[in-house]
Amino acid sequence: MTLVYIHSENGLSKAAKEVVTYAKKLGDGVSVITNGNTAADVLTQLGEYGASSVMVDRSVSIEDHQQLLDLVVFAAEKTGATTIIFSHDLTAKAIAPRLSVRLNAGLVSGATDVPNESNAIRVNVFSGKAFGFVKVNSAKRIISLLPNSIQPEITGSACGVEEINSGAATGRIKLITTKKPEGEIPLPEAELVVSAGRGLKGPENWGMVEDLAKSLGAATACSRPVADIGWRPHHEHVGQTGVAIRPNLYIAAGISGAIQHLAGVNGSKVIVVINTDQEAPFFKAADYGVIGDAFEVLPKLTEAIRKFKAGQN
């Protein structure tokens, strides 16, 4: 049996569909354990992606990692699962390592593919500059799947949803407040990202970047110096010391493409680079390049996207 833990707050995320699809590909039966407010008649759709049953414990807080851990342990024991799958997000980073010790189960974090013929699992290493293949030596294993690594696939039909009460106790970490920026697309989950660097000259010029992002429905990101000087918030900083992302499309304007920046974005499927300097190292990592002034190119590109979108409707 394969057990999948998902967040299910306000519906089913793409990440949730990805991990259930992934679990299905492993070949065993798939049980899902979740918490949160998503209604049973929505959770049942997980069956379409391969789940044979869903358990939901609504008493467990998404923000209490210790309680969540106990919930997953409870579900693992109940289902007798030998493989446990997470999406490689902030929750997985908090609980999967503890679970690994608790169950004596090898942890493969940031998996980008299903196990190969020799049962080794591909992960990114050296900040995305290489791949490693990891084998698990223990009887049980835990895999956290890097978001955007596989496409959700519909292969089945609705499944049963059981409301449970695991009795998981609250943890020793006391929650004071939570701040969630409203309406923004969280960077690690974004499929389209528009990013800019020091070439934009100052924070007052970010309107162009936001306009392009809005026309695409993209998230915004930036290079490290831009976050360090305070032109943009820290959570937008991508790269080796910031967030690592792998969207379908990454548009970089006024970013030179230093190796530490590339380390966080070179997993992107398609990279577009806009830079005045034709020697900018970023062009070597790009699929499409525009040699030109971001102050002119960004508004033109936004215009072209709007025209394209209007034509599609």
């Binding site: 942890l107 791949f131 390049g289």
Partner: peptide, 18 residues
């Protein structure tokens, strides 16, 4: 509990289209 059995380098990007 785990071991790295193999490494690989990503295939180089084909030339950037200007």
């Amino acid at each position: 509990l785990t071991s790295y059995v193999l490494y690989d380098l990503p295939v180089a990007k084909s030339a950037c289209k200007m």
